Structure formats: C-alpha cells, structure tokens
Simulated scan of single mutants.
Amino acid sequence: MSGDLFAPDDGAWVERLAPGTVLLHGWACAQDADLCAAIGEIIRLAPLRGMATPGGQNMSVQTSSCGDWGWVSDRHGYRYAAADPQNGQPWPRMPERFRQLAQGAAAAAGFSGFLPDACLINCYLPGARMGLHQDKDERDFAAPIVSVSLGLPAVFLLGGLRRADRALKIALHHGDVLVWGAEDRMRFHGVQPVKPGIHPLLGERRINLTFRKAR
C-alpha cells in the first residue's frame, strides 16, 4: 500500500491506497445537505428494508436502491432487479447530482467514463456491519466501485483476492469517497461494526451510497 497523497484543483486530499484503490477525503462534504435530502426522497419512495442472505441469515444493514437497477437478496440469491420487489415499481430515478458525484470521483481516481446505472443505499445503525464479500453480481467488472460515506464514521476492511487474505483497515469519515477498480475490483471488502455516536445531519446513522455499473 503506497499511501501516496495528492491534491486536485479543488484542494480535496486524495490518497492512493493500492494500485486501483483511491480514497478521496471529504470529497462529498460540500454537497452533503443536498445528498441527504435526495436520500430522504428516495427512501420515501423505496423504503429501507432488511434483507436476508440466500441461506436465511438476516443482514444487519438496511438497504434500498435507485437507478435503472436495484440490488436485492433473498432465498433466490443475490441479484439486480429492475423493479422494487416490495411494490413492483421501478426503483426511483438516480438523481443527477448522484451521477455527477460518482463520475467525478471515479475520474479523480483515474477511472474516466464511469457510467453508473445502480446506486445502493445502505443504512448502518450502531452495531451494524458488513461481512467480507466481493461485488460480483455485476456484468461489467471493468467499471470501478464508487462508495460515498455519510454520517457516522466507520472502519472499512479492504482485503485481498482471497477471503483469508489480511485486510487493510481504512477509517472512513463523513464525506469521504472510496473508489476501487482495475486489479483491485474483485478484492474482498467489508465494514466493521459501526460505533455509537451522533452526526449533525444523520443522527445515529451511517449512510453509504455505492455506485456500480450493473449491466
């Protein structure tokens, strides 16, 4: 891990953690209020819900989606669906500010031309976590993953290409954007249990926006 730091024209600090992994410190802070308002409208239309793994284990993170595709998990497996299974309606439209944020962050990390068609909205209450996993339900592994952190801080685990590989612990704060792709695209990753706290905008929550090219 190189930990190289550089600053683009807007002054945000960008840290390269691995050949295909870049952390943009505070990249989304300037528009956090607008992002949170948009999230509120999306989850009004497609409420957050707890999902279960195909094996029947309940996930501690609550999830919704926006864009052309939404990610779902149930006894039938992990997959993308064009409609919200709770109401049969298409997922809410991805706000243009979301798309621009994801594309700008991807470009700053060296992945120009990113065209996200899915945004997962994950809500972590204190104690919620995400086990080590790979994002492999997408058809286009050439596109990066762009992950935006809002609200309570969290520790992100960036593992290797095998589940047993030692994971790097990355502290993520409100407004940080983590981008990984290329040779790092299939690395295992997860989130340690979120610690209790209060954030001025989101209270006792961490919201993660994960942008992907699903199809």
Rank of each mutant, 00 (worst) to 15 (best):
M1E: 13
G3K: 01
D4L: 12
D4G: 02
P8H: 04
D10Q: 01
D10E: 02
G11L: 00
A12H: 06
L17T: 00
P19D: 05
P19R: 02
G20Y: 00
L23G: 01
H25W: 00
G26Q: 03
G26K: 00
A28D: 05
A28R: 05
A30T: 10
A38G: 11
A38M: 09
G40H: 13
G40A: 14
I43R: 13
R44K: 15
L45E: 15
L45D: 15
A46F: 09
A46L: 10
A46W: 11
P47A: 11
L48S: 11
L48Q: 11
G50Y: 14
M51T: 13
A52G: 10
A52K: 15
T53A: 10
G55Y: 05
G55W: 00
Q57L: 04
Q57D: 08
M59D: 03
S60W: 02
T63W: 00
S64N: 00
C66T: 01
C66D: 01
G67S: 01
D68K: 01
G70I: 06
W71A: 00
W71Y: 08
V72M: 01
S73K: 00
S73M: 04
R75Y: 00
R79N: 02
R79S: 03
R79V: 00
Y80T: 06
Y80C: 05
P85G: 03
N87V: 01
G88D: 09
P90S: 07
P92G: 07
R93S: 10
P95Y: 09
R97L: 15
R97T: 12
F98S: 10
R99D: 04
L101F: 09
G104W: 07
A107M: 11
A108F: 03
A109D: 02
G110Y: 12
F111H: 13
F114D: 01
F114A: 06
L115Y: 01
L115K: 06
L115M: 05
L120Y: 03
I121S: 07
N122T: 04
C123N: 12
Y124T: 10
P126Q: 12
P126Y: 10
G127H: 09
A128V: 03
R129D: 10
L132Y: 08
Q134N: 06
K136Q: 14
D140E: 14
D140S: 10
F141R: 15
A143I: 06
I145V: 15
I145T: 14
I145N: 08
I145G: 06
L152M: 11
L152N: 09
P153E: 14
A154C: 15
V155D: 14
G159K: 12
L161R: 15
R163E: 12
A164K: 11
R166W: 06
R166F: 07
A167P: 12
I170D: 05
H173L: 04
L178S: 02
W180T: 00
W180F: 15
A182W: 02
R185S: 04
R185V: 04
F188D: 07
F188L: 05
K195Q: 14
G197N: 04
G197P: 06
I198P: 00
H199V: 03
P200D: 02
I207R: 09
N208Y: 11
L209E: 08
T210Y: 05
A214N: 13
A214S: 14
A214Y: 08
